[in-house]
Nucleic acid binder design. Structure first.
Lengths: 342, 342
DNA sequence: ATTAGCACTCTCTTGAGGTGAGTGCTAATC
DNA sequence: GATTAGCACTCACCTCAAGAGAGTGCTAAT
């Protein structure tokens, strides 16, 4: 049910790849000359007219070549695209880079540098979502009293994310009392994800700690807040790369994108996904006004087969899909190895 | 030794303020008509020729009005500028905003939102440097073992900055042993800034802990690293605001600035200062190629009369200096109050 | 079914002419 | 002696027309 015979597919493939390279509308002559299609320009013109009617390509004006539509890119990505391979140089750069990263113990640093390498290799803007709190499991919790009224809660998750939160103490507490609560919670919650704590378990915990119900409530509030606010740990790389794209010579578009880049909550909402593997969203598939001319390629990274975060590359719809997918997969793999070691 | 009589000063003042408003070269007629200077355009032309020769203004081309040079802005800022006042709306917005912020206990959140309000009010890009580690004093330290090989060091400073750092343990340690080291360090270092630790004191500490010299060395290494790397906690706000300025319609310039914005280390180097009060750096005074067309206005914020961080506004040299200075001072004051309460 | 040929369309570049803002200089005026 | 009116001149910018070039759709021949 593709609706496209092989010849049309070949021509569409030529149009997309040529346009991705040149950013110029592709004419029939260009195709008949530069691509392995033994047809005259006139024949190709006829086919192109068909492709246009079917919605895969369009003309910026009557006497120009064709450019792919969103539907055209979608078909290309789903059915036509060749697989790319990392160049030896890229491969070398990547392994060397992650060998360096291995020394780092803090996940936030790792994520930050991952964003950088991702944008450096692709020449697009990269977005990396740190391990999501609600997908992470408890490892350990500690409470450090700051003064009479406040204490610092330190939470270590199995994804290496370390969460600090200052809470107000309901009353002055003995160190001993704190230690008791902390020890109990550590014991009960170790290895569990926030999301997995059922209402039943919470009630049980609350019951067990009834004597210290006030502290407990404070802690739980803190956890819930963290699960919400903490999500927006998005790291960007290569924001200036979007300026290299001719489609963003319009100031207004850039402004909207830059403004979007400052809205961590919207970015993380965009990146958050349950889907596994590489996901490609083209143009309006992003459901964001500002992204109508952009494509976003994302991949999840994992801890013990559990997806905990997302890395992504943002470019124009005229993005080098094949190349970026290869790179993003390679980097996700490296990241998986690194996180497993934390 | 200003070299400028009152009339020339008045004219320069008119040129600068008009150009700041309009971004258009200012002609002699505009000045004689719109400003309280009872002179004909011809006379003003003569004076402007003088001002040009003295280096305060320049012409984009022979038959255009004048625009201020860097020297012209400098003189304006030093000698001519009127003081601005907050509008009632700004004032209200500010106090309300900081009233909300008061609830936050984490300095990083406060700093982040400060950057936002600063860019929102000024319509320029804001840069805020978090409390600098080496200007902060110890409040408390804790070590939380993660596993056999690693531990998390949590450091709380009096500026509210909470530093996490994972260190490798030289060997498996008893909790008791860790507690001992931590207790001792807490006792010895409380209230001291990193910078103030003399070699003598370090030697003393090292001596006292000779039995656990390995842990101690790890901790000190961590502190030193922190003092260096941790400095680059720069928060940006309103990066898209630079696109509002007509002088940045050139893609290349924007690209350079955006690239600079991603280099936290260079930004914090730029913001770091020992100077007190408001500091204005115009064009090449910034000593950064990318900033040759920009001005940067910074102010320190304080904890107990000790400058601990910097807030700043970045705009074109044609920046509304007076207005920005007023706003930046007001925000610095609010921030001082907030930090004192941490 | 394919292709060569051709008229046609549309963008983009180039150059000429006109407009307007602003200048510098000179001579008259206060 | 300082100020100003007047005037010729400069230069950016706009508009318009002409021409080039790339590419198309259609038709007729292969």
């Amino acid at each position: 049910m593709t609706g496209l015979n092989e010849r049309k597919q070949k021509i569409l493939h030529a149009i997309v790849t040529d346009y991705i390279q040149t950013a110029e509308p592709v004419g029939s002559r260009t195709i008949s000359r530069h691509y392995q299609i033994n047809l005259s320009a006139a024949t190709i013109r006829n086919e192109m007219a068909d492709l246009e009617e079917l919605g895969y390509v369009t003309q910026p004006h009557t006497s120009a070549g064709r450019i792919p539509t969103q539907q055209g890119y979608r078909f290309y990505v789903d059915a036509l695209m060749d697989q790319a391979a990392l160049t030896p140089a890229e491969e070398k750069y990547l392994t060397e880079f992650f060998r360096q990263l291995q020394k780092m113990q803090e996940i936030d640093l790792i994520i930050k540098y991952t964003a950088r390498v991702l944008s450096d290799l692709t020449n697009y803007t990269s977005l990396v979502l740190g391990p999501q709190f609600r997908r992470s499991a408890f490892k350990q919790m500690q409470i450090i009293p700051i003064d009479q009224e406040r204490a610092l809660v330190v939470l270590i998750t199995d994804t290496g994310y370390i969460k600090n939160k200052v809470i107000m103490l309901p009353r002055a507490l003995e160190q001993e009392e704190l230690d008791h609560v902390v020890a109990y919670l550590n014991q009960q919650m170790a290895g569990k994800t926030i999301a997995s704590l059922s209402a039943e378990q919470l009630r049980q915990l609350r019951y067990d700690l009834y004597a210290r119900i006030d502290i407990f409530n404070h802690l739980m509030n803190m956890l819930e807040e963290s699960a919400a606010e903490g999500e927006s740990r998005v790291f960007l790389g290569g924001t200036s790369n979007i300026l290299n794209q001719p489609e963003f010579k319009d100031m207004e578009k850039i402004k909207h994108l830059l403004t979007l880049f400052e809205q961590g909550d919207r970015l993380s909402f965009m990146l958050e996904t349950d889907a596994e593997g590489v996901l490609i969203r083209i143009g309006t598939e992003n459901n964001l006004q500002e992204m109508n001319d952009c494509s976003l390629i994302t991949a999840s990274y994992y801890l013990y087969d559990r997806p905990v975060g997302t890395i992504g590359v943002l470019g124009p719809t005229r993005m080098e899909y094949a190349r970026v997918i290869t790179i993003i997969e390679a980097i996700a793999n490296q990241l998986n190895r690194l996180i497993a070691a934390l």
